[in-house]
Design a protein around this nucleic acid. Structure first.
Lengths: 338, 338
DNA sequence: CCTGGCACTCCGCTGGCTGGAGTGCCAGTG
DNA sequence: CACTGGCACTCCAGCCAGCGGAGTGCCAGG
């Protein structure tokens, strides 16, 4: 049904439309891309493409515009991923290398991604669920007040304050700290509950309540913080969307404020490969005319979290995909080093 | 020059303009507010107010619109701060009480403020400079790799990883940890440098390099993190600005992305009282038609940081100021408790 | 199967017109 | 002297008609 030339025409339409933001006509196509056929022929092909639902015209006798389905075909079969230039790569590395801690890494990453793609960038903090524990620290703030600090292998730090049922001695605390760390250091979050469950038994009846409190808080932290953190940058780039503004930008800004929505946009975290969601594929009303390019990143083989960008469906997919992939790789490296 | 009735007229103009977003004319004024004079008289007063620069007309034979100077007078002399209703207060308290840690407190605060005022909310993290140290923790990640964790009295946690010049033993580390904490716990950041400067002397020549490295990192953390963190929410509310969009919203979004700008907007941190910056008073081109209402908040008498909202100059000042003040108070309470 | 030609459609822009809202000024009045 | 009603004037916003251009669909011919 769709011979090679028709696909060439579709590719040309997408490219031109992305470049100009205006419906593209047969004549312009014939001129700008050397397709070696006349406008009339192209018109026939366009009619076929429209018939199949890959392109559409805003109104009779206007040029054609790709549909979501058209972009989908373009991304899947007609375009590759455009690698970044060497200077660009070097700039990324230089910029990310300057980070001092995890917050800084994430902050720099999101700004970098926004600047590189001229779109809205979203970065998820390395997930706690798939992280391992580097250290658990216990501090007394007051006789019956304890702070628990949890440090992960990705450098993420979580803290909780709890009220102990009774005053707690320094040596009990030290003992408890040592035992907990002995059990859990290097272990994954998911496995911790099992590992510490019988820890209370080796303490005296007197100490037991305190131990229980601490362990409960530890588990609580592990569970609660699965609520993932995300940051974003580059919202000003939304103004490039078009001139028919408020109606377009409003729901997008609203969606971006909801972290739940953001996380869903990045995709179910199981998939480490690059994912492109186009228009309605996002399953979110306000984001019907935006696309999301996301990919997992991590220090080793497996993805710790995701990052990506959000932009208008009429975006430069090859370039955006290239930037997203490159940034994800470098962040992975940085995290592996620290 | 400005008798009472002229001030009444100005107040009425501001109120009506804020409510309708349209230039207000003499006739409408006479009707909606019972000023007990005829439109013609009001016109005379308006002419005087315009002469003095408090109001202006977009074009001949349109209604009047307040100028920055007009809003300034309104805020300073014509309007009070509108206290929140009891249900509103209760809702604030309820919402903020649910927070589990500092990040959560700040996150909830900023979202709350945005929702309450229907504007863009900005909250600065409790400043490290004026904080005191609650605990310093040292951990070995690898034989020559140390992590320093710094916990402040506001619950903020900072961490740094450093490479030690030589392998470090657990007992040396414990000793060092104890000595550092003995010196600095409860002290203010600014005073720490002085307190630890001769700490190295009590260690052997062999240990000295390691100690020096750790202390350097500690001081580094204190200094570097004076770079304050801010978060914001409610950018979607910018779409209420008007219909002449992209031109208006663009520079605002851009300004909001720069944390340096945000911090300056909140005001030099020395001033704990409520500050209103109107239009050009912000000294930032892109924010010429926005106003900022900010106030310090803190756990005790002194302000730890600031929070505020940003909106169009044509905002409901009394209401906004009331909301900002109320939220600041409750956040202060929450921080004092933890 | 491709191409050039032709008639047709429809958008977007321009220019002129009109109604309405609001002003400034002036003369009159308590 | 301050306020009021009346009046002429200004200017914007919205509407409508006309026009040019870009693009299409279709058809007959190579």
């Amino acid at each position: 049904m769709l011979d090679d030339r028709k696909l060439d025409v579709l590719r040309a339409i997408v490219q031109d439309y992305v470049a100009t933001h205006e419906p593209v006509g047969s004549k312009a196509l014939a001129e700008r891309h050397n397709l070696k056929v006349s406008p009339a022929t192209i018109r026939n092909d366009m009619a076929a493409l429209e018939e199949e639902g890959y392109i559409t015209q805003p109104h009779t006798s206007a040029g054609r515009v790709p549909t979501d389905k058209g972009y989908r075909l373009f991304v899947d079969r007609l375009a590759g991923i455009k690698p970044l230039s060497t200077p660009e790569r070097r700039a990324i590395q230089l910029f990310l290398d300057g980070a001092v801690d995890l917050d800084d890494v994430v902050g720099r990453t999101v700004r970098l991604l926004a600047q590189l793609t001229h779109q809205v960038a979203v970065v998820q903090y390395p997930s706690l669920t798939r992280s391992t524990i580097r250290h658990v620290e216990l501090l007394t703030l007051a006789p019956t007040r304890i702070m628990l600090v949890l440090i992960t292998n990705t450098g993420r730090v979580e803290q909780r304050v709890m009220d102990a049922p009774a005053p707690i001695g320094e040596n009990l605390l030290a003992d408890l700290r040592a035992r907990i760390n002995g059990k859990v250091v290097g272990k994954r979050f998911a496995d911790v509950a099992l590992l510490v469950q019988d820890l209370g038994e080796s303490f005296t009846a007197e100490e037991r309540p305190i131990v229980t409190t601490v362990l409960a808080t530890l588990l609580d932290t592990l569970v609660e913080q699965q609520e993932e953190r995300v940051v974003l940058a580059g919202t000003a780039n939304l103004t490039r969307f078009g001139t028919d503004f408020p109606m377009t930008i409003r729901p997008v800004l609203e969606a971006l404020e909801e972290h739940v929505v953001l996380l869903r946009l990045l995709g179910e975290a199981t998939e480490p490969a690059m994912v492109v969601r186009i228009g309605h594929e996002n399953m979110h009303e306000g984001l019907a005319s935006t696309s999301v390019v996301s990919v997992g990143y991590g220090s080793g083989d497996e993805a710790l979290a995701k990052l990506g960008v959000l932009g208008p469906t009429r975006m430069d997919y090859p370039g955006t995909m290239g930037a997203v992939r490159a940034v994800a790789r470098y962040v992975g490296q940085i995290l592996a080093e620290s």
